[in-house]
């Protein structure tokens, strides 16, 4: 099977001098296509940093990162944005929806940056919103939706450009356990349909549901 993600001795340091924090140290990691990986580790261990590097939101100081065989370590800003938009779908703990836009408009936004026409965007947004069970809430603003519903909108948005990889940074962290389970179920369904999923979590019960678990401590991936 093809490799979805390959990290080769990747490191990332924040700050300079004696306040410098090495958030990720020589990380080596391979994720196969169609995998479902859970990343666990204590707070401040570098999970989010790792996730941002994989998602092309940040660039490593050393090492190489391959996404779908493509080296993103030395890409220009606009190439990074392009890759991010096409191959990655992000789901965040704080949902990170744009408050002034409706659910549907939020889902349409990633497609705008990929240059899809208004008609295509509208059709696809409705489709993915129905897929996450929000067909009846499309025109509501995030403020009018429950936490679980907002996270579903975020997942729909992550699916908008039909990316191969979904990165979820503590997607259930702001939800009660019942809603959290629903969201996890949704991600598992997506995994069954072929998406490669990486989920960061503190919740052991969620981690156990993953196909693989990776531990990270003080920036070291094990």
């Amino acid at each position: 099977m093809k490799q979805a993600i390959q990290l080769d001795k990747v490191c990332k340091t924040y700050g300079k001098g004696h306040t410098a924090v090495q958030a990720v140290k020589n990380a080596i990691l391979t994720v196969k296509e169609g995998d479902f990986l859970a990343v666990v580790g204590p707070s401040g261990s570098g999970k989010s940093t790792l996730m941002n590097l994989i998602g092309a939101l940040d660039v490593p100081e050393c090492g190489r990162i391959l996404l779908e065989g493509l080296d993103i370590s030395h890409m220009t800003e606009s190439e990074l944005a392009q890759t991010r938009g096409k191959t990655i779908g992000f789901v965040f703990q704080q949902f990170n929806l744009i408050q002034t836009l409706s659910a549907k408009e939020n889902v349409m936004l990633p497609m705008l940056f990929q240059g899809y026409s208004a008609g295509e965007r509208s059709d696809r947004a409705e489709l993915v919103l129905k897929q996450v069970g929000l067909g009846h809430r499309m025109h509501h603003k995030p403020g009018e939706l429950s936490g679980g519903e907002q996270q579903r909108v975020a997942i729909a948005r992550a699916l908008a450009n039909d990316p191969k990889i979904i990165l979820a940074d503590e997607p259930t962290g702001n939800l009660d356990s019942k809603t959290g389970k629903d969201i996890l179920k949704l991600l598992q369904d997506l995994n069954k349909k072929g998406k490669t999923i990486i989920i960061i979590t503190h919740d052991q019960s969620i981690a156990k549901k993953a196909k693989k678990i990776v531990h990270i401590k003080d920036g070291v991936v094990k």
Binding site: S78, A81, Q82, R84, N96, I98, F113, N161
Partner: peptide
């Protein structure tokens, strides 16, 4: 600022 971050995370280029 946060909204800009969100837009970048879903594929917005600097030029967008």
């Amino acid at each position: 600022t946060r909204e800009i971050g969100i837009m970048k995370s879903i594929g917005a280029k600097n030029s967008n």
